[in-house]
Design a protein around this nucleic acid. Structure first.
Lengths: 133, 133
DNA sequence: TTAGGTGCAAAACCTTTGCCATCCC
DNA sequence: GGGATGGCAAAGGTTTTGCACCTAA
């Protein structure tokens, strides 16, 4: 994969945030640095970067993907009301993969675990609008 | 929610399969019984049924939702090559939710766990086409 | 030089929605 | 009768893609 300034910027943007951004959020950030960048380029590079393991992609509610520059295995929590995605500090259980593989014959590479519920903000603001983050 | 023959048929179709179907698959099955049914109706009812807890929806790869008539908590495996989704018989760890909730202040209702890897078929047919299931 | 990267816009894709007719209750 | 449902088709939002033009190596 050849060097490209757009790809580097995109990777840095994703790595530089904890917010598990959508492609659209990355696009608007990228335009601050590279006003001429196009949305297609953002999508193309997010895909390339995730295929090459430099970031991770998670399918989100409503068919919107979220990206994560932290490629160390970890779990997530997603708020059922506002959709915010945060990291969860809980040890990853690799033993689980081994056990399932042995029992089923499936080849298990890893597992994705997502807790669902209400984030702290939404617990306190249940009836208000859904724009915080 | 009032009775409707389309909704009943749709629910039965989802409950009657183990394949975690997409909306499109449900649509094509439904047309066998009700040739005049429309795709919009299938989507509307899948949404209603999942909101009322009579089935579960999972966001899939490529922004495609898959539905599950088995609403008992359980884990899944998804093949990274062909996308097939199967149930995994592994006890659900509710203690995990309690622990995370206590530690983080998040309200955790449940968690979604998906194993990823290669299904038995794809382990043996790695280079062929991707249409089996 | 040249294969890979980019901008732009169109297309593809899945899903939702508006409108009017139809069906439960 | 009246409000929920359904058919149809158009619109919506996200992501991909074709093509001509750049750019890194």
């Amino acid at each position: 994969m050849r060097y490209s300034s757009r790809r580097e910027a995109i990777l840095r943007i994703v790595q530089g945030t904890q917010c598990h951004p959508t492609a659209d959020w990355v696009y608007s950030e990228a335009r601050k640095q590279l006003p001429g960048i196009s949305l297609g380029t953002v999508y193309r590079n997010l895909k390339l970067l995730s295929e090459s393991g430099q970031l991770h992609a998670y399918e989100g509610a409503g068919g919107v993907s979220r990206f994560d520059g932290c490629v160390t295995e970890h779990y997530h929590f997603r708020c059922q009301r506002c959709g915010v995605m945060v990291d969860v500090q809980e040890p990853v259980d690799r033993e689980l993969d081994r056990r399932v593989a042995e029992r089923t014959g499936l080849r298990v590479n890893y597992h994705v675990l997502e807790f669902r519920g209400l984030c702290v903000y939404c617990q306190q603001n249940g009836t208000e609008s859904v724009t915080h983050e």
